[in-house]
Amino acid sequence: MSEQQALIIIAGAIIITQGLRYLGLSIGGLLPTTGRMGAFLNAVPIAILTGLVAPTVFNGGTVTFIGAAITAIVAYYTTNMLAAMMSGIIVVVALRQGILF
């Protein structure tokens, strides 16, 4: 990545992210929060984040898949991000070092 390309991506990312916050603030209550459109908009964050992790979880090999399963289970029962993250990482490291099997 060239210095110039990096600068454009970083400046663009800052403008896009802050621009979305300001746009959201200025349009305020105009966005639908109920009905079909509301359901669509509410589901966007979960859908996007799923798309971010799904390829790695399912194509990343057995160790990654087991680590992901542990992370998901701990996240579900504790709703503690730090605990979920650490459990998954510990399991992945232990499996790679051959400690568990």
Binding site: T17, R21, Y22, L23, G24, P45
Partner: peptide, 8 residues
């Protein structure tokens, strides 16, 4: 894109 929603 979710910032649009939460900022709103």
């Amino acid at each position: 894109l979710r910032y649009l929603l939460i900022a709103a």
